[in-house]
Design a protein around this nucleic acid. Structure first.
Lengths: 330, 330
DNA sequence: CTGAAAGCGCTTACAG
DNA sequence: CTGAAAGCGCTTACAG
């Protein structure tokens, strides 16, 4: 900036004013400064600028996800980033790999950049470490799963409602033995989906058979094993509710390997690319990932714009898409 | 920091030294400072710190992609981010939406944060605007597509080689009329894949029929229309090479709708989730997105570590995965 | 409308 | 080993 001022023959203050679009600078001086900036290829240092500015905003939002390459999370990120950019801010991201320590490191690294807001898809089981930042005015919103040991805004899918809808869809088609395949129950979404499934069974007076509930499934292989075990039961299920993406894929593969895919009904939680091209096409409970991202961004900006009320919880609806696999008869 | 110094009864300088792990501070003073930091929930301002530091590094890398929610790009991002974090830096991301103006805005917004490095999956047709930053020492690497009007390190897939392998695979199975479905040829990867296809035909003495080449396909619907048009030719192709993910999906849907999926051979460029569960399972040329990301990060850090040689170009191999659709007879 | 000066939150020679 | 002071690149009352 010094060089620009020297070249334009004005003071640092004037250069700063031109850069900030102050209308009270004489047009010819403004011109000279802009020419000098162009000539020198000068670019203002945003962090020095923010450091000195009265409002002390960094114009950036930190996003801590579990894995940005997960298609669901990538879509949430996209929804977030779109709103963030429309508001003229920048997005910082990091993947925690479902590791609480890494999540904390990332969140704190972001916090020490004086981000204006933080979006977390939480992995850890204790988010109280963010209390100082929240109290210091960092806008904060949790997405997909609520925070633990911390009050904050949160946006989640209607996990229980979606799972209940799937179960009721199967019940309505005459299924009475429905296998449930889920992720680790310490994960909020996994627990909620199981809850929705159970409540739907209860509402319809179906007593739950513990043999039909398989959880703690961490990958497609585990899901495949669970499918095989369920189908080997003396009284096997006639339908499956696969409560997560990776589990659905593992179940689809195993059903095909066993050549049972036309015989056993199935509904997956989360939509899958090409689900409609399979035989049978896969019925799913679809989440609106982009809407989750947008809703999270909106809660965040409401806080940044000064909203000061209690913490808000937004639940994004899910949609049952019937394509064939969920409509197979028992 | 002032409050910490006051509480600990030491100077600002001592607090700074403790924070930076300077070994020459008396243990008891270090203890007092750490206690004060914990008590006050103090967190150092990273941008003020970087501003004053001798080395002037921001410890962050900017990443400009077309769409972070695209599965391929999400996987590249993941590869990048993993290496970046291992090196202790932070990742900034933005999506350009294939808009050259947006790409430029993002890259410049990052540059004015004094990022240490920039990774671009380029949309624009002129990257000379980055020359000042490159010359000012910002490490820079382009991924998936090379820069235009700018020399810089670049990491790409072996697009031509992969497409040639697909074409040769089909030729070896007796196909002589192969339909090529591609994206807009202004996109480097689309042009390269067509080039590979053509060169394979030439090598085998097959003269190209212009009717069989359909490019500028921007979405699944356009790809579907192209499939229908090809199959309606008087002398239709017996095999298809669908040269991009979205195009493959559109083609798969249309082939099924026409009930020709067991009759027309097909190889897609880019692997698809569930490709193995379709009937027939889809043969593909798989790219190693994570390897692209890692390679890009490594070129970047080589520059940051002072590598000063000419610009490097890394080509990541592709793999043909035969699953059935590419092995159908003519 | 413009410039000299103070100061944002830090780090780092320098002197002790 | 420690502190007072200068200064990183900016912005902004303040006086003119």
């Amino acid at each position: 900036m010094r060089e620009v001022a020297a070249l334009a023959g004005v003071s640092l203050a004037t250069v700063s004013r031109v850069l900030n679009g102050d209308p009270k600078v004489a047009p010819d001086r403004g011109e000279r400064v802009r020419d000098a900036v162009a000539l020198l290829g000068y670019r203002r240092d945003a962090s020095a600028s923010n450091l000195r500015r009265a409002d002390r905003v960094s114009t950036s939002i930190g996003v801590v996800f579990e894995d940005v390459a997960n298609p669901f999370q990538a879509a949430v990120l996209r929804g977030l980033e779109t709103v963030i950019r429309q508001r003229g801010l920048l997005t910082l991201v990091g993947s925690s790999d479902d590791d609480a320590v890494r999540e904390r490191e990332l969140a704190q690294a972001f916090a020490s950049r004086r981000i204006d807001g933080l979006v977390v898809l939480p992995a850890g089981t204790d988010h109280s470490y963010l209390r100082p930042d929240r109290d210091a005015g960092v806008a904060m919103v949790f997405v997909d799963r609520p925070p633990v040991l911390l009050e904050a805004d949160v946006v989640v899918s209607d996990n229980a409602g979606g799972a209940a809808a799937a179960t009721e869809h199967l019940l309505a088609r005459g299924h009475r033995r429905i296998g449930f395949l889920g992720d680790e129950l310490r994960i909020y979404t996994a627990a909620e989906r199981l809850r929705g499934h159970r409540e739907a069974l209860w509402r319809h007076g179906i007593s739950e058979d513990p043999d039909l509930v398989r959880t703690e499934l961490r990958d497609g292989a585990a899901a495949g094993e669970a499918v095989a075990a369920l189908l080997a039961l003396p009284d096997p299920p006639t339908a499956l509710l696969t409560a997560q993406n990776v589990i659905s894929v593992g179940a689809i593969r195993r059903l095909r390997a066993l050549d049972r895919h036309h015989a056993v009904a199935m509904i997956g939680f989360d939509d899958l690319e090409l689900a409609d091209a399979l035989e049978p096409a896969i019925s799913v409970i679809a989440q609106d990932a982009a809407a989750l991202g947008r809703a999270a961004a909106e809660l965040l900006f409401a806080r940044l714009d000064g909203a000061d009320g209690g913490y808000r919880r937004v639940e994004v609806p899910t949609t049952l898409i019937a394509r064939g696999s969920g409509e197979l008869a028992p």
